[in-house]
Amino acid sequence: MASIEVIIRDDDGNIISQQPATQVNLKNANLDSIEADVEQWRKETLPKIESELLQQAQTDFTTGEKTS
Rank of each mutant, 00 (worst) to 15 (best):
S3D: 05
T45N: 04
M1F: 06
R42A: 10
S68Y: 06
A21D: 08
A36M: 14
L53Q: 05
Q40N: 15
I7Q: 00
L54N: 10
S17M: 06
S33Y: 10
L46G: 02
L54H: 11
G13W: 10
D11Y: 03
E52I: 05
A57I: 09
Q18I: 14
E50A: 12
D11G: 09
L31S: 08
Q23V: 00
D10W: 07
L26Q: 15
Q40I: 00
I49C: 00
L54R: 02
T59Q: 14
N28D: 13
I34N: 12
Q19G: 10
T22N: 09
I7L: 03
Q56V: 08
K43C: 02
Q40A: 15
D37K: 12
I34A: 04
I34S: 08
T59Y: 10
P20C: 11
N30T: 08
S33L: 00
E65N: 09
D60G: 02
D60Y: 04
T63A: 08
L26F: 07
N28Q: 12
K48A: 02
D37L: 07
S68P: 06
T67M: 11
S51R: 13
D10H: 09
N14F: 04
Q56T: 08
G13K: 00
T67Y: 14
M1G: 11
P47G: 12
I16M: 12
S17Q: 12
T67Q: 12
Q58D: 07
W41C: 06
